[in-house]
Design a protein around this nucleic acid. Structure first.
Lengths: 201, 201
DNA sequence: GTCTATACTGTGATAGAC
DNA sequence: GTCTATCACAGTATAGAC
């Protein structure tokens, strides 16, 4: 009984430290860029010596891995919340889903690079961290299936289209909205191409 | 007279060494990945000590810069050769142009990352190295203008679509052809969307 | 002009004392 | 669990030999 309580408090404290490390890492990554993260800066900002970080994370890539997982978890939760108010009309639904992903992606360059680009040399997400990403894709395919999009190729083309616009936005006009204003037009082209029924605009 | 000859031979030798460095760098980058390039490995493979490379390039990023420039120059020349046999029919022309870019991109992951993604921390191409890329975009916009595509937004959507498919191909199915088989369908959707006249298939 | 020897700084990572 | 000390390995700068 007492032993359990002690263990719990230790575990809580340990988890709190873990979270603090991750929060500092996110701050630094947003300040200096995803790849510019250094363990020394994380440690000093947290009031630790660099080697002590290895008590909480096995390596630098393990930190990236946890960040990767939490980023996709965050988007998964956003998508789940959005789902309950998703328009029933096929075109409006796709537009909303595309907008949600686009805005989430463009809001944080470092996060997007971590989630969707392989910009960290040698980093591969673990199976565990990858799980939310897989669930999001499955959910999205399901939601598109409900409105009659059953061809996987059509889905991939939609993903490529939205991802391509995000990439352009972040690479050529970070902080701007030039590609954001093209998103609806692009999605409409796709909706026409896959034969979604026209609807009330 | 004699002085000139001497200078020429020295310049030739110098240029040859430069090219040798770049060739070795390309090999290493294809073997170990774009970001894994180290000056030490370039030097040893070429029979030099690492600091000696600084006689020929001001920094590691200067090597990346030269590689960036030559990669875009290579594609510019490919596009120029392809131009003379480009189909006159709008849809066939766009399909051919898209195919050329897609195949060139997918053929060499490291080259594509260098040309189109910002995967090297701290590397920004110089204005000089960037020039061929600018010319290629201008040429492409011109060629699309000839077939009636005048809206810059439509052009950006096409670029996003093709780039997105390349990214997916390289990230999810490197060496495969899953997205390659979607390219024509995607371009057709775009052609329908921007109102290119239907034609002989 | 070209290359070498040496060294400086910063990085992720490890070993062992407290 | 955190520290000190240290390692191996980057990129890079400089001085000097040929």
């Amino acid at each position: 009984m007492l032993g359990e309580t002690t263990r719990d408090r230790k575990a809580e404290r340990r988890e709190a430290t873990r979270q603090e490390i991750l929060e500092v890492a996110w701050s630094l990554v947003r300040e200096h860029g995803l790849a510019q993260l250094t363990l020394r800066e994380v440690a000093t900002r947290i009031g630790m010596r660099p080697p002590s970080l290895y008590t909480h994370f096995a390596s630098k890539n393990a930190i990236y891995d946890a960040m990767f997982g939490s980023a996709w978890l965050e988007y998964e939760q956003l998508a789940a919340r959005a789902r309950v108010t998703l328009p029933a009309h096929p075109r409006a639904r796709v537009r909303t889903m595309a907008r949600n992903f686009f805005d989430f992606s463009v809001a944080d360059l470092a996060r997007y690079q971590l989630m969707n680009q392989r910009t960290i040399p040698g980093f591969e997400p673990s199976e565990h961290a990858f799980a939310p990403s897989v669930r999001v894709v499955r959910q999205t395919v399901e939601l598109l299936g409900e409105i009659g999009v059953t061809d996987r190729g059509d889905v991939e083309i939609l993903f490529a289209l939205i991802g391509g616009l995000v990439d352009q936005q972040l690479a050529n006009d970070p902080g701007g909205d030039s590609r954001s204003r093209l998103l609806d037009r692009a999605v409409t082209m796709w909706a026409d191409g896959v034969g979604l029924p026209p609807g009330p605009e």
